[in-house]
């Protein structure tokens, strides 16, 4: 029995939320559909298309950037709003997502919130301190880092993420994004995103996020706090990496074993940090 019986096209956010709600769990939202389209059996009776309800714009709003949840990843890649030096690392993350064909359909919202273990955007948006606007639930916004916890996002079931908002990093910040995969075309073994501000020869602020190699994408807060105010030195970076990788929950699967991943994550963290402060390493 094919389960999918209808494909609905609401005209507004409110209508979309109501359409899913009235099915009490039998309906689901769809945007690019690149993962639902892969499913042998779509786990919903009907889908509600959110690509035609005004969530398709990228705009600068003062010191923030606001991205509609249904903006495609391909749209991000050619957006003049995002084509600024401070967000170059975000562009690297964007272009590292799958293929051109997938980027033309898949949406920012979908990549960030669907919980795909191989999604490339969460790490980059985590260091941007992105928050999500919600519709259909009492809570109006939530930090992406909170939302990524399934226990939290389950509590928001029936709600719709409408927008991704983040403050533009200060002009003196330096961002780096590294995707590491077995081959150029494969899904990531490791995604690392890093945003650093220096004051003289000291770390003023450090944000580091890791994707695809822990059960959930995460910020490495212990490392961030350790580095703050410390001198920019290879020795200090090595200590920070040691601290970050000590108790990290590392995946162990067919793409990479835990021993391998654990060693590599240290190497890549060091490279990412050093690249951010302009000491060796590439941007890829």
């Amino acid at each position: 029995m094919p389960t999918l019986q209808d494909f609905k096209r609401p005209q507004s956010v409110a209508e979309a939320v109501a359409m899913v709600r009235e099915g009490s769990g039998r309906g689901g939202f769809v945007a690019g559909g690149t993962s639902l389209g892969l499913a042998r059996m779509v786990p919903y009776d009907y889908l509600v298309d959110i690509t035609g309800i005004g969530l398709n714009e990228i705009r600068r709003d003062g010191e923030s950037v606001r991205i509609g949840a249904a903006v495609t990843i391909g749209q991000l890649a050619i957006s003049p709003v995002l084509a600024i030096g401070e967000l170059q690392f975000l562009m690297q993350a964007v272009l590292s997502v799958a293929t051109r064909q997938i980027r033309n359909m898949a949406t920012v919202g979908g990549d960030l919130i669907s919980g795909y273990p191989m999604a490339d955007l969460p790490a980059a948006f985590l260091v941007l301190e992105a928050k999500l606007s919600l519709a259909g639930v009492d809570q109006e916004t939530i930090l992406l880092r909170d939302f990524l916890d399934p226990a939290v996002s389950r509590g928001l079931n029936g709600g719709l993420v409408t927008e991704i908002i983040f403050p533009v990093p200060p002009p003196d910040s330096r961002g780096t994004f590294i995707k590491f995969a077995r081959t150029e075309n494969d899904v990531a073994l490791f995604d690392l995103a890093c945003l650093v501000r220096l004051k003289g020869d000291q770390f003023e602020e450090v944000r580091v996020a890791l994707g695809c190699t822990t059960p959930l994408p995460l910020r490495l807060t212990a490392m961030e706090e350790f580095l703050q105010g410390k001198r920019v030195q290879a020795k200090v970076v090595a200590q920070a990496v040691e601290l970050a990788t000590q108790d990290l929950p590392i995946l162990d699967n067919i793409r990479g074993g835990r021993t391998y991943r654990k060693q590599m994550v240290g190497v890549l963290l060091r490279r990412t940090l050093l690249a951010s402060v302009g000491k060796g390493g590439g941007s890829r």
Binding site: F7, V30, G33, T34, L36, G37, L38, L47, D49, T51, G74, R100, Q101, I102, N104, M105
Partner: peptide, 16 residues
Amino acid sequence: LLDGRAVNSCITFAAQ
């Protein structure tokens, strides 16, 4: 091409 953009038609719903 869907509205001029290359997509994989095998995972695109016809309804889209």
